[in-house]
Design a protein around this nucleic acid. Structure first.
Lengths: 122, 122
DNA sequence: TTGCTTGCTTCAGTTCGTGAAGCATTGCGC
DNA sequence: GCGCAATGCTTCACGAACTGAAGCAAGCAA
């Protein structure tokens, strides 16, 4: 049996498996940094969930929160190195999604053997 | 804004973000195949959740279910190619967990001052 | 007959996520 | 001054997801 406390996959899963978490990190990696930017980009997320996610990620040392005492107040969220280290994971997901979940395998079972490995897009 | 239906990261996240999902896939990749094996390995999962996960993964074409009409009944779950394609993702998680969530970074936070100007995967 | 195993399902309860609304700040038009 | 707008949240009530314990069917062993 796998020990939940020491298994690195489990520990990563605990950080990553919450709904929206990976998409928040992806958005931050792509340059979005403000609450309302994220809220608009992640169509469908509730502000409560976004707030919880950002707080948990800050707690975990994955994002850093900077407040600017302007009017209206501005808050920026930036990935720390620990957060940027998750980007390869997201790139894997992008590759997987393109290869196995694309428009041409809607039935979910068609292997994409002939497909070229996708290059990360800008 | 990102279109949830076409973005490959979102589509992968939808499959992957449920609690236990990635750990179930990891266990299958490591050779465990029977319900009770998974149940024992994933200490803490409820049989209902495991059942739901396996069913959803089967639905998604990620695992294949084979029943053997023995006594007591035997059921084996095996990763399809589409499922095995998720293993690199899990390996990335293992690497990340080891690198950033190990015993030597329990506090989980490297201050921004130490950050290198690494270019984000924009 | 009771007990044992596997692979689940059912039930009640807790936690998680949603959607709408509200709050505090203050600069702008009126 | 008054209401409106924008940002970055919080609060609330509700539904969905997950949990933990229990139960069930099948058949063989004691």
């Amino acid at each position: 049996m796998v020990d939940k406390d020491t298994c690195p996959v489990c520990r990563t899963a605990e950080i990553v498996c919450g709904k929206w978490t990976l998409l928040v990190i992806r958005d931050l990696a792509e340059g979005r940094s403000r609450f309302c930017e994220l809220e608009r980009s992640l169509a469908g997320i509730s502000p409560r969930t976004l707030s919880l996610r950002l707080r948990a990620l800050e707690e975990a040392g994955i994002v850093e929160r900077q407040t600017f005492p302007e009017v209206p107040p501005r808050v920026e969220y930036v990935l720390t190195p620990k957060g940027r280290a998750l980007v390869p994971l997201i790139e894997d997901m992008r590759v997987y999604g393109r290869e196995w979940l694309g428009a041409d395998c809607e039935d979910g079972y068609t292997p994409a053997a002939a497909r070229e490995p996708a290059v990360a897009a800008a």
